[in-house]
Design a protein around this nucleic acid. Structure first.
Lengths: 217, 217
DNA sequence: ATAGAACCGTACCGTACGGTACTGCAATGT
DNA sequence: ACATTGCAGTACCGTACGGTACGGTTCTAT
């Protein structure tokens, strides 16, 4: 956890970005998560990261702390793709949504995301270990937070007409559908790059068709 | 595993329905799954089911066998709701879909289903233990198998126009959306009975609006 | 009535892993 | 040069759990 008890800035805001060495460790954890799921041991982390278990425990307190730090680090890496809001044309709006959907699907079907979500799901059962909450906040909730302003702009430009909540739920369903749960359950048949493109395009078309202002409703 | 090595009908087809005593055991496992997730021990099962660990191992081989038997038993309990296909009106078709969606959402948000899916998701990571596959087959795949003939009838009656695959994906997305993954990640805010009704109705309306023959497309 | 199987309860074993303690080394600051 | 500090590496400890063994009891079949 935060900068190794340097005399200067302890407590403070916490949540500092991890040092290079720490990132090595967290990266190892991420790899092991992908390879072995939740089953990896602290010893295996120490071995592969060439550090001592004692160091792991000094930095992260316990296993759960290490997992939490890893999850938060990974979450912090997903950049917030800001949308330029000057262009209000339907085609630009549609393109933005399509790119977002495509990127979303790509992330969700990546090995790291699958491993992370599996971990969070299994830890959400056992109380303790706020991993589920963290992934929830950095997954669905974060996507919601990113999408709502986009929808709002679309609404302002009279391109769509729908309440924010419903817009998110609808968009989520159309884009993700059964892709994520199937991936989590180990379905080998993951969508290809092309299929993701098609899914994204189709989902956006359907989204606009359902709550767009152009024709129906 | 199957009838305790009675001299008569061993091997045969396997997969016999469990005896009353076995169902007691499996029911205990289900309860423990809901309470403690994957963390429960074989000893706790034996204790609560008032049986010996030795019996558990004789019947199910190992822990994974017990989990598998439990999952399969639970899956076998979900009845296949057959649709009467004489009525081909749009309203009857819509009502059938709505009831299906509503029932689906209710099941997915139940404690047992959440616990079961959590278990399957976490075991899908660790190789071994075909639990993920089993839940996949009895979850999404089974739903698909049940829905496809319904869609086909709707298509025959010229109520909808869409390929079966796409119809399922679309229907799944519109109905489930982010409900399941949020539940799996431990989101406390589960939809109420009323919200489920609304979700189901709205999803069916959207589904028919998107691929129905009445107006657009 | 009696043999045999199933089974409960419990004690037991091996192992794996989370967490701690200790030793030595290497870097840093004075 | 020397003390201090952080860390790698390893040995160690306690515990929890999967799996097995065994004694005693109940049920079943002949």
């Amino acid at each position: 956890m935060n900068e190794h008890l340097t005399i200067s800035d302890n407590d403070a805001i916490a949540e500092q970005s991890p040092s290079a060495r720490e990132q090595e460790v967290l990266s190892v954890v991420l790899d092991l998560m992908v390879e072995e799921g939740d089953g990896f041991s602290m010893a295996s982390v120490a071995r592969r990261a060439s550090c001592s278990k004692e160091t792991l425990y000094r930095w992260y307190g316990d296993r759960d702390g290490l997992l939490t730090a890893t999850v938060q680090w990974q979450a912090s890496k997903v950049a917030m793709p800001i949308l330029d809001d000057t262009n209000l044309t339907l085609s630009a709006f549609s393109r933005t949504l399509r790119d977002f959907a495509s990127s979303w699907l790509t992330v969700l079907t990546s090995d790291v995301s699958i491993a992370l979500n599996r971990l969070a799901v299994s830890h959400a059962g056992n109380n303790k270990s706020s991993l589920g909450r963290i992934v929830l906040e950095n997954g669905p909730y974060a996507m919601r937070t990113r999408l709502l302003p986009i929808f709002l702009k679309g609404q302002k430009a009279e391109l769509i007409d729908v309440r924010g909540d419903e817009a998110f739920r609808l968009f989520f369903g159309l884009v993700i559908a059964d892709v994520q749960i199937r991936a989590l359950l180990g379905d080998e048949k993951k969508p290809t790059r092309n299929e993701i493109q098609e899914f994204a395009q189709k989902a956006v078309d359907q989204f606009l068709s359902l709550c767009g202002k152009q024709q129906n409703q």
